[in-house]
Each structure stands twice: as C-alpha cells, then as structure tokens.
Write a protein that binds this DNA or RNA. Structure first.
Lengths: 236, 236
DNA sequence: CTTCATTATTGACGGAGCGTCAAAAAAATC
DNA sequence: GATTTTTTTGACGCTCCGTCAATAATGAAG
C-alpha cells in the first residue's frame, strides 16, 4: 500500500500530463477548444487511454477545477488564523479570496463552464462533491469568524439573521463582482479600472452596514492589508 | 414601408415560432439540448430555412436572451419613477430587479450560457450590443438615482468613489446572489430558504454602510415594498 | 524460460449533430 | 406565359465524441 509500482507511477504521471495539456486548451479556447483527439495527440497516447482516465470531456474540465479547489481552502484557513479582532480576520479572508482570484483565474473559467447544467450533468458525483466540499469548508471558515464576532460582541446580527446569511451576502458580492470583472468590457466603460479595490470598498461598506466593530474608519486599511499579507499570505 | 407583404409577415411569424420552439428546449435541456434538426422538425420547416433566420445555434440562444432583455429596462424605468426619496427609489429598483429574476428566470440561464467565450464568440455583434445596451441602460438608471441621492445630500460618497462604483457593487451583489441561488443545493444546506429576502437585507445593509439616508431602521420596509408594488409594479 | 491469464493500449469505427449548397420550388417581374 | 429572382429543401461533408474488438504488455505459475 505504501509505495507504488512503476506502472502505478506511470498512470499517475500520465493523468497529470493529460491535465497539463488540457488546461491551456480550455483556458485559451474555452469549452469548445477542448478536443479529445488533440489531447491524445499531444500526450502521445491513444484516445482510448485518455478515456481510461476520464470518462468524458466534461470530466477533464471538472478535474482541472478540482486541481485548484483545495488551494482556496488552504488560503482561507491561513487567513482565518490572522491574529486580530474578528473584523480584521474577516478582512484577512477577503484578502485571501482576492489573492485566489488573482492567482488562479483559470478556476473561475472552469467553474463557469461547470455551471451549465448540460455540462455538470456529465461529471462524476465524486469530483462534484470534492468541489462542493471545498466550497462548504470555505463557507464554514467564514461562518466561524462571523460566529466569533457575535460571541465577542463585535457584531450583533439582526433577529433571524444567521451567520450563514451573512456569508451568503459576502460570497454573492465577491463572486458576482469577479464574474462581472471577467466579462470585463462593461467595467472599463463605467470607469472602474480597479475592480478589486472597489470590491474591498464594498465589503467594508457591507460590514459597516451590519455595524461590525471596528467600523472601517477606525483602522488603517492599507496598514492592515500589509500586515495580513506579511503574516499569513506572505508565501504566495 | 409602413405595412408588410404577406411573405414578410410569414417570415416574422416563423422567426417567432422558431424561438418559441427553441426556448423550452434550452430551458429544459440546456445548451446541449438545443438541436437544430429537432427545431426544424418541430416547426415543420427544413433546416436550411432555420439557418436563413439564425446563422448558428448560438445565435438562437442570444436571440432568446434578447427577447427578454428589454423587459428589465422597462421595469427599471418604471421603478425609478417611484415617488419618494432617493433611497426609496433605489429600493424600488431592487424590487424591480427581484421581480425580473422571478418572472424571467430563463433569461439568466441564457446569460450563463452566453458567458462562455466559446459560445458568445459565435454570436452576432448586433445582438450582443442589444443586450449590452439594455444592461447599460439599467446601470445608468441606477446611477441616476445614486446621483440624485448625492445631489439631494441623502448620500455622501467617499472621496474617489463614483456613483458607477456603487452601481457595480449592487449589481455584483444581486447577480452573484441570484446566480448562487440558481445553483441552489448549497443554500438549502446553509439554512437559507428565502434567498430573495436575504438579498434585500444585504442591499439594505450595503446602503446603510454608505450611510444613504434614510437608514433602514427609519422606515417600514414591508409597507414600502407594498407601496412600490402597488404604485409602479402592479401590473406584473 | 515458457505458458497462460490478466490487464492495458490502440485506433478504426459508429453515430450525433452542425452547417452548406446545388437543385427544386415558389414568388415576383415583365 | 416566359423569365428572373428569391426562397426552400434535405442530402451531404465534416468534426468530434465515445466505444470496443483486436492487440500488446505485464504478471503469475510451473
């Protein structure tokens, strides 16, 4: 169980190689650019062998998404360990989310493709649940910080308003913004040259709206972000 | 120019018929479920005739989106005419946006498909710009209300923060939320049974965060929404 | 080392579905 | 009624997915 036979090694390496070849195809040419015959040609194995690894084209796309999905959890976990008050930890997680979008833009392209029912339908439950679990882990890290904030009385949520609802709002805001930013042309036209900065401002406003202490004018956001960068996200 | 020949009438009617047949195919079976041969069979015209109307499959999808895109502008325009303070007009527009999502969920499915570069690439500039213009009109209606708010001193934006940036935030929040809600399964799991209500709460929080007067605890949201419903959105 | 069984690889093939285009039909013009 | 123009048709070519019988490689046993 411990070590692998040469054959097993070869299979693992080949799987990685297939994905390495497929990734730029999808990134550069989108869903229709991913071509099973071309992959087979590029990795110098037959099409049948590719199908031994992935049951269909769509399965390759979700496998590419899986490759990145754990990274976000890892970044969120590190960010949540930031030493500071609850709000500052929340900011740290936002910074992690921004970093993830900047460093792994491919992931969101894969996700957009997988949003189509007719694509996702063809993918395996197994990989679907890996991605789903990563997402849920991220959400629950954020929810944890929100609960800490409530516990420490930095934040008082309205009646009936659960921490999960706040997470949903933050998640919507950021994912919506990054999705619009990717489509892009509209933003230029509106004079928004740094969407990331604007998202940060909106997160601050949203948290202020819930009166999550300390309010945004009570700390120096630039200094805070530098500290976050240095203390929990330095090696990215 | 004024009236149409019988032939021209027939062509227009046929175009509508094609879209009528295509719509449920896309809605029910997604991008892959749209099949040119099936359409031809269902409308009882040959495939070649379909291609006289639409240069490709993707063009049909964008035409379906175009069918709905003007409706949102219309709803936004009506909502912006709500008699009240700037913040209440903003709420009216949010209500219009919510109504649009509820009544025209298809539109967002088409939009998700068209977000894929490999799909949008194949569509005509003409239809792309129709949709783009509608979106821009909506944005500028919202921006107008924001500017009114600034002019009437209900709202003071931070330095460097343009009305367009606020629009971007609201747009991100709502489109992100509705997109997540459509994917759905995650929300149930988080105990969010009414995403629309949660979005409303977040919009309120965001506007509060910018200190847009009157703050949310200074008015009765339920009464306000009823008035909006009655006065500008009644016939929907 | 040889034989046999098991597993892995191959690529020709079937089939689905998009988009085309030469021929046929219909409409318009003279 | 003849001729030109426009419209319609559906068989066809093409691309690309996914399969599977045949072949090759690997491993086990004698």
């Amino acid at each position: 169980m411990a070590t692998l036979t040469p054959k097993q090694r070869e299979i693992l390496e080949r799987e990685a190689k297939i994905l390495d070849v497929a990734r730029p195809m999808v990134v550069r040419e989108g869903y229709h650019g991913l071509n099973m015959d071309k992959i087979a040609e590029k990795v110098s194995y037959s099409k049948g062998t590719i199908y031994n690894h992935f049951s269909c084209k769509e399965e390759i796309i979700i496998a590419l998404a899986v490759q990145n999905s754990a990274k976000r959890v890892q970044l969120f976990q590190k960010a949540a360990q930031f030493k500071g008050c609850s709000r500052h930890r929340m900011i740290a997680i936002s910074a992690a989310a921004e970093l993830f979008v900047r460093n792994y833009p491919d992931f969101f392209q894969f996700e957009r493709i997988l949003q189509l029912d007719s694509v996702r339908e063809k993918t395996s439950e197994k990989r679907q649940s890996i991605i789903h679990n990563c997402e849920m882990q991220c959400m629950s890290i954020v929810a944890g910080v929100v609960r800490d904030a409530v516990a420490s009385e930095d934040l008082e949520l309205p009646k009936q308003f659960t921490p999960e609802k706040l997470v949903f709002g933050l998640w919507s805001l950021t994912s919506g913004a990054y999705s619009i930013a990717a489509a892009s042309d509209a933003l230029q036209q509106m004079g928004i040259d740094d969407p990331f900065e604007t998202v940060r401002d909106h997160i601050a406003a949203l948290l202020d709206g819930f009166n999550w202490q300390p309010i945004s004018d009570q700390y120096d956001i630039d200094k805070l972000l530098k500290r976050i960068q240095k203390e929990v996200l330095n090696d990215e």
